[in-house]
Design a protein around this nucleic acid. Structure first.
Lengths: 207, 207
DNA sequence: TGAGGAACTGCAACTGTTCCACTTTCTGTC
DNA sequence: GACAGAAAGTGGAACAGTTGCAGTTCCTCA
């Protein structure tokens, strides 16, 4: 995270432009709604050309998530640098509780959360954002456990963990949901559903 | 599935138009690639206006998946009408093996599968297509087990099961992958990773 | 100090998608 | 059998996201 030497004027200006665009975008989106603001509007507010805008952000949706950044690295680190004796699933649980839950529950970001939650395009983009880290996470898990890089169980675990943000979105108690999901991942449906796994005979209603 | 009475000329013509569009699209996409064919090209080949094209399909991607149809119903039925004594997870496993795996492995669809696999837009659209059934499946599972409709464990299970097509895509042995993933879901990571869950101390490499 | 490159601009074009007003074709009903 | 009304289709314009291009300005670094 240390930007070691003085970054130089050019890079500072570039960063400033990028920030100006992101700020303008968020401001306009929060005020009028994502769909009623055009990319050209954002560019104009930030006083740049649309070409410049797209030189900094790959898409309109990306304007909102200008901090996609180092989720990848944090995720990998959470697994690699876990305490001795802690399993990977527990490490991921801790990471989720410590780094993800606060973001969703922070009241200062309520309006931002609402913007994303109320805009299908943004919700989808956000979910997809998480999934983009599945390959990295899968590889790290496999590496930590001395398995083949494409081990299907590791791939599955990675994707399932990255589903969690989507699963907790819009729930009253994200923390509890996270716990439930991790218990499921760790001990399996069989354990959490009771030994009988809810056979069909237990219920009344049927087709 | 029975279109009981004679469908009437109008409906037949409509179906024919729709089919002509889908055929033209697939033909052009397979020949030149999804990204190098415009919607206007497809419309022209099918001899309709783009307006008509979008009256039949909600998006360019949808042209490829003109059979999204009754996955929802089949999924719900697989759970509801499972044999006595079979758990929901086992029912879903059976469904996946019987209904999903053959589609991916069918050699007659190799070129189609390749088209989707090689086109990011299509792969994403396909994955999202599956996830659209998560709410239905979650509700059915909860209902079968007498739980709250928004039970987080049911929601998680549903989403995880629907991740399976994405997880098996492009693998050499989809069948084995499906089995592995269901074992993970059923018995948990703890069971499949061994009792120690691979604590950090087991490995050498560390950050 | 000067060369080269990066950031930015303006504009035009392309593509997916929607809107509009209008024609054709079918269907159900008196 | 004629007719009202709905449904399907048309053509074209327009909008919004995105990209390409040629040219300008401004840093950086040797």
């Amino acid at each position: 995270m240390p930007d070691s030497p003085p970054p130089g004027r050019r890079e500072r200006k570039k960063a400033a432009t990028r920030q100006a665009i992101a700020d303008a975008a968020l401001e306009l989106f929060l005020e009028h709604g994502f769909d009623r603001v055009s990319v050209r509007d954002v560019a104009e507010r930030a006083d740049v050309s649309t070409t410049t805008l797209f030189a900094h952000f790959p898409s309109k949706e990306a304007l909102v998530f200008d901090r996609e950044q180092d989720v990848d690295a944090a995720l990998a680190a959470a697994v690699r640098e876990r305490p001795e004796e802690q399993g990977v699933v527990e490490a991921l649980r801790a990471h989720a509780l410590k780094s993800w839950v606060p973001i969703v529950t922070d009241p200062r970001r309520a309006d931002f959360t609402a913007l994303v939650g109320d805009t299908p395009a943004l919700r989808e983009y956000g979910e997809r954002m998480w999934m983009r880290h599945a390959d990295t996470l899968s590889a790290v898990i496999a590496e930590e456990l001395d398995r083949e890089p494409d081990d299907p169980a590791c791939a599955a675990l990675a994707r399932f963990v990255l589903e969690i943000p989507a699963l907790t979105a819009g729930r009253q108690d994200p923390r509890a949901t996270v716990e439930t999901v991790f218990d499921l991942l760790l001990h399996g449906w069989h354990a959490q559903a009771g030994p009988a796994d809810g056979p069909a005979s237990a219920q009344a209603g049927r087709g």
